[in-house]
Design a protein around this nucleic acid. Structure first.
Lengths: 410, 410
DNA sequence: CGACTTGCTTCAGGGTCTAAATATAGGTTA
DNA sequence: TAACCTATATTTAGACCCTGAAGCAAGTCG
């Protein structure tokens, strides 16, 4: 193998190689001409870099040299990212369940494994081991080993610091939700980031969802508790502890209410109504078994026109609008994205919330939309971030098992 | 003069020259060895770059070659930023007054001119002309001409977009506060930025005030209306329209109140109390002429122990604490800085606000401090930003009147 | 099959950096 | 005062890496 790219500090070669690799990460198959346009380098340079990146295992040259989009002239050599040059691992380590997504360097999901756990039945150490086992299962299912992985991002329902730890308040709950994932996975030789779940949800929306091409938006993760992730001027705003969007302060502002999420409130309110005997006999909500009396049932009943459900939705709508107006007003974002497991069923809720939002917003109201990423937002955000880690400085990673080009005699 | 630095696109030379120039902007006098340590370049390269930057008018070489800090060895050549290589202009274009600060490339204030105007007595065009005339006066006083200026930043009490315009709501008031400053000054060949005043105040605090070395903080500009500027993770968060921190939405949240600022509220409440006859006869506030019954008088009376003034301060304290808690909680900042003309007199107010803030904050309360920059914050923020513009890419500017080195025969 | 089109390869040239050798401008010391 | 010492300046050779131009190669088209 040739001398490592960019041995001396300011190396142009290294910068150019990174730029080329970023181009490769962002495109499917490409030719030297494509890369020339994208990087501004000359053909000779691009081809030299491609050769080197092939040798190092990042790229491979395709056999079928000509694509179908043109016919004249000498066919261009075509390169593409090597399929298994490296894998990315994204983990959603939520209180009640753990999801691991394994993706390739293009961000395509290779494997996805979810397992539930009882948050009250595990110690922090057991939780960490559980998460590790889910990751192992996902890698096994993908036919991969630790060495295939370049980076790993873990989403936790807690603020995190630069080291990926959560040594903060809430009576140790935050720390118990983040029992040393950073060390756990760094020990495998991976580049690891541990990040707040709402922040990662925002990154998923930017890359794959409703945040595409929106320079400033907020993502409201709104199941049991509200949590917000902000992308402002195309940049994630995470704060000192990654606690931007932790909305516990809202508990203290009347008319805005607690930081309770839509899922929790819908369940609570419908049960209160039933216990108080306020549900009309005709309502489906009066007959459901208690353990099915949850947010999805309420939203479904409202969609079907049930008056009691509609009343609850209306209350939720006003509350959501207040929170959205405050966040959007303070941070000057253009769009609010409601994400999480409830997202697919909040259509009517958002419809009802928009007039309130219009009224509460100065000078103009943001868009209010539902995420299309369902309950995978956080996991997808984690792999998105893992991919970003690679994109930031690809050459700091070594791809798995470089190609053994024809062995050269010394 | 030699060929322009960095003629071919990816030029390392240009990057290195910029890095060296940034070093020069941040240090007083420096030697090649200093620059080598700062940039990582070799001596030969550094000296080559210094020669070139001297030739182009950015640097000058000092005559006294040896400083006093060492004695042995060959004395090092010493360089420094050329004093008048360029000037920076910062303008605080507030409703009632216009301040222009002229500074040199080290950020040192060279000249400062303030003039008052009556916001109701001028058309937008007249306002623009007025601001331009204040700038002219300041430059005249500094003995400078337009060509000496590299960049100019104008602070306006309005949101601004990327082009420096304010085509937004509030019944045209915002637009009237920003009547085309960008074009006005760009026509002089200056690099111009028009930015919201609270955002610039935050930049001033970061560079010169209570925000130094604090990675995340907010600056509350709190005279007639509240406006906030946020620096999170060492980066200004300005939002789509630069309207981050416009707090009109707070008008709709009860217990938090309007976006009225401390100055306005103190005046309003003390006058209400007097009209309602609630001021005890012993209070100094009962005897002051009405036009002196303003925030400073209230704060001064409170400092002296006046009970009526203390009651007002207590009310202000709770309100300030609520706003601070919400902003700090949502954005996860470590410190709130109260800035503006009232800043020097809010000591007691902040003292009273801290217990409230402690109570309202989860998990931990931010620092609450008063700015030390007084009523110059905004103007200083504008020059700070103007200097940042130069720092970002120094070589895109041409310093004024380059040195005429010994004329070479062609 | 030859003309044509497009991409590749090679090579000379130039810009820029570094490392090492050498020169220089002072102090320090005998 | 002269020899020495130190830290810096200057010069030089060499390496790296990019570009542009010229020529070669691999296809399609008529």
């Amino acid at each position: 193998m040739s001398k490592p790219i960019g041995s001396t500090p300011p190396s142009l070669r290294r910068l150019n190689a990174s730029a080329l690799l970023r181009h490769a990460l962002g495109s499917d198959v490409f030719t030297a001409s494509d890369a020339m346009a994208s990087t501004g380098l000359s053909r000779a340079t691009v081809i030299g870099l491609c050769d080197e990146l092939v040798e190092r295992g990042w790229l491979e040259e395709l056999a079928d040299t000509r694509g179908d989009d043109y016919r004249l002239g000498r066919p261009a050599r075509r390169y593409t990212l090597r399929d298994r040059a490296g894998l990315l691992v994204g983990v959603d380590a939520a209180p009640h369940h753990v999801t691991t997504i394994v993706a390739d360097l293009r961000g395509a999901v290779v494997e996805r494994v979810t397992r539930r756990l009882d948050p009250d039945a595990v110690t922090p150490d057991e939780r960490r081991a559980f998460v590790a086992s889910v990751v192992d299962d996902a890698l096994d299912a993908a036919g991969a080993v630790d060495a295939d992985v370049l980076s790993c991002v873990v989403a936790v329902p807690a603020p995190t610091d630069a080291e990926g730890a959560s040594p903060y308040g809430r009576g140790g709950w935050w720390a118990s939700m983040n029992p040393g994932y950073a060390q756990e996975f760094a020990a495998r030789g991976w580049q690891v980031v541990v990040e707040n779940d709402a922040n990662l949800a925002a990154l998923a929306e930017r890359a794959l969802g409703e945040g595409r091409n929106v320079p400033s938006f907020a993502t409201l993760l709104s199941g049991e508790r509200f949590g917000a992730g902000f992308v402002v001027n195309d940049r994630l705003v995470r704060g000192s502890r990654g606690a931007t969007g932790e909305m516990h302060v809202l508990e203290l502002v009347s008319d805005v209410g607690s930081a309770d999420g839509l899922g929790l409130l819908a369940r609570k309110w419908v049960r209160e109504a039933r216990e108080a005997g306020e549900l009309p006999a005709g309502s489906v909500l009066a007959r459901l078994p208690l353990d099915e009396l949850q947010a999805p049932a309420v939203f479904a009943a409202a969609d079907a026109g049930d008056a009691a459900a509609l009343a609850i939705v209306e209350r939720l709508a006003e509350r959501l609008a207040r929170i959205a107006a405050i966040l959007a007003g303070i941070l000057d974002v253009d769009r609010m994205i409601v994400a999480g497991a409830v997202a697919p069923s909040v259509g009517l809720l958002l419809e009802r919330a928009r007039p309130y939002l219009e009224r509460f917003s100065r000078p103009s109201a943001p868009d209010l939309v539902a995420s299309t990423l369902g309950d995978s937002v956080v996991g997808l955000g984690a792999v998105t971030r893992a991919l970003d880690l690679v994109r930031e400085d690809p050459l700091s990673f070594s791809p798995a098992e470089p190609v053994q080009a024809g062995a050269e005699a010394p």
